[in-house]
């Protein structure tokens, strides 16, 4: 459908632009917020591809929790707020550009060479179906992932903990 095509092109273009802003800006807060926008546009793309539940999960989990976590991390590590010229490693820039462009080239070549199909537009994905599949066919990975989350939870708390005796008001 033509309309969907044009919308998707615009979305994807915007996606790329915002992503470029994530990695090039010298303001850490701008980088984090640009990531938010990247994720939002990703969620919109998912809606187009009739993956509603996944889009919602992105918005809720990714943007809601992960980005917040990032912002906290930025603040804790006393990253210099505002413009900061020292954010990029100038030595690596050219080589990194070459590397990333080569990777882009290789990937796109492979993808274009292999896949030439059309997307099947459906009316949307039934969440009930998703949940059913998740808990019947993929119950095992589901449980494993919950363990991973538990481990990450405990691990994170353990790592970030500190000895009460050493605590003083300068430390967090």
């Amino acid at each position: 459908m033509e309309a969907l095509d044009i919308i998707s092109y615009f979305l994807l273009l915007g996606l790329l632009l915002v992503a470029v802003k994530v990695v090039t800006t010298s303001n850490v807060i701008h980088a984090a917020i640009s990531l938010v926008f990247t994720l939002a546009i990703t969620a919109a793309t998912f809606l187009l591809l009739s993956a509603e539940f996944v889009a919602l999960v992105i918005v809720l989990v990714y943007i809601g929790a992960v980005i917040v976590l990032f912002l906290f991390g930025i603040m804790i590590t006393r990253a210099p707020l505002g413009q900061n010229a020292e954010l990029d490693n100038d030595k690596n820039k050219s080589l990194a550009l070459v590397v990333s462009l080569s990777i882009f080239g290789i990937f796109s070549y492979v993808m274009l060479d292999t896949f030439d199909s059309q997307i099947i537009i459906t009316s949307g994905t039934s969440t009930e179906l998703l949940g059913e599949i998740l808990l019947s066919r993929f119950v095992f990975p589901f449980e494993v992932v919950s363990f991973v989350l538990l481990a990450a939870l405990i691990g994170g708390i353990t790592l970030a903990r500190q000895d009460n005796a050493l605590m003083d008001e300068n430390q967090i």
Binding site: L12, L16, I119
Partner: peptide
């Protein structure tokens, strides 16, 4: 819709992340 723009966009995102 063709699949290819999406795939190219994903590849681009990937390489931006690498950068």
């Amino acid at each position: 819709m063709s699949v290819q723009p999406f795939l190219i966009a994903a590849a681009g995102l990937f390489s931006i992340g690498i950068y």
